[in-house]
Design a binder for these strands. Structure first.
Lengths: 233, 233
DNA sequence: TCGCTAACCTAACGCCGATAACTTCCGAGA
DNA sequence: TCTCGGAAGTTATCGGCGTTAGGTTAGCGA
């Protein structure tokens, strides 16, 4: 549909002997650009990628076992920036709890900025992906590990009750943020321009709810709110 | 792959004169069964459905404009049961707040029981679906309308601070529940057999967080928790 | 019995992911 | 300088997909 007049013999020059890896990089950038430009997985066909690079479809398979692997690597590149973005957002936070909130907001914003990548990685059924295959593995690396650390810090200052598995708490917080992200991506019309308000509300509410849950000491709501935004207990 | 030996001329008897609608129903049930059995959108191809019914692919188009419309109707049938399931779950609740929790749990359980239907309807980009196109429309019908009512009831008994738009609050609660559902569907390995624990934690936390947010009166945490599970203020 | 038309079917188009087998051509070794 | 192995592609093709154009059959009213 888009300028595929078929008569596009703008062939790419064949790579020299040891430079076979060059095509691999060109394919990756072509796929990445195509996904970013169209915002649609369907637009990133092997044929479209090959055409953009100036090569025939089977050549792709010299460097990637299948389409899935190609998309996975493209998304992997994008998601590699997630951890850094979340940590940067939490940098100036006044308290661990505030850091948690900033991380959550950065997470949802990242999803909004890379909607199709997010959808490919986190909104498709993936029973046995390349990534971690259980919660413990996930908790040991990247952004989720930092999230768990952040939860632990909240427990240490008393914002969260200690004793609960920080990994499970982090999973709950992740699920809430993921809900906002997934909803915004799948149904942008639902929220309109109030995406920021929604993500703030959900993330803060879930965080405060976890802070409140399990408490048996008669802490007042105001005390709790104050404690959450303070550095000390 | 599955018994498509091609030599399956078990042709269906052509419908009589006024009974053209019969094929439509047969196509719907075939598609529904196929989706339920395989749990995969890809398995529900026009050709596979036609084959199961005992008809040729183009015949499908006599009753459905395209594949999308067929899937939409199949999912619509399933989702028609969601509202009833949520209301039934909230029936015996001791308080509006408990009703909110039961509704949320029922929602996630519904998603787990119909994962592929849920994924088709709520985890794919749908800029202009047949359904409601803005939040107000959505708030006026079905399960979401009941959720909004439930939020309003929580405001009336003082569990939630009044003044906030109940629709927005309901949206936030929905997002949190959706996060759990979407995570469980896309990455079942993450949670293992603790799905119930995760959904309970997220739903309760978000509800309590919303109950706490916006409060300026020095209500104690314990008082608040107690109030949430009581019928009266 | 005729003929209209509802209810199908046959054939085909253009797309897709993927594979087998062929060609080109660089560059190291004789 | 010539050769020839193998890296870096190509051509041809398969089976499957959604969808469309146009032909065929059979039941029912006249």
């Amino acid at each position: 549909m888009t300028s595929s007049t078929k008569a596009a013999p703008a062939r790419r020059r064949r790579a020299r002997r040891g430079e076979g890896e060059r095509l691999r990089e060109e394919v990756l950038t072509a796929a990445r650009d195509l996904l970013a430009e169209t915002g649609s997985e369907a637009a990133v066909s092997i044929r479209a990628v090959a055409d953009r690079v100036g090569v025939t479809p089977p050549s792709i398979y010299l460097h990637f076992p299948d389409k899935e692997a190609l998309l996975e690597e493209v998304c992997g590149e994008v998601f590699a920036r997630l951890d850094a973005a979340m940590e940067a957002a939490a940098q100036g936070a006044e308290s661990p709890f505030a850091g948690l909130r900033e991380r959550g907001l950065a997470y949802v914003r990242f999803a909004i900025e890379n909607p199709e990548h997010y959808r490919l990685v986190l909104m498709r059924r993936q029973d046995l992906g390349i990534g971690p295959t259980n919660l413990k593995e996930l908790a040991a690396q990247g952004a989720f590990a930092h999230l768990v650390d952040s939860v632990r810090a909240c427990q240490e200052i008393g914002a969260f009750v200690p004793g609960e598995d920080p990994t499970r708490v982090a999973l709950a917080l992740w699920a809430a943020a993921h809900g906002v992200a997934a909803l915004l991506i799948a149904h942008p019309w639902l929220v309109g321009d109030d995406a920021e308000a929604l993500m703030t509300r959900v993330i803060e509410a879930t965080g405060m709810g976890i802070a409140l849950s399990g408490r048996t000491d008669p802490v007042s709501g105001l005390q709790l709110l104050a404690a959450l935004d303070a550095n000390a207990d």
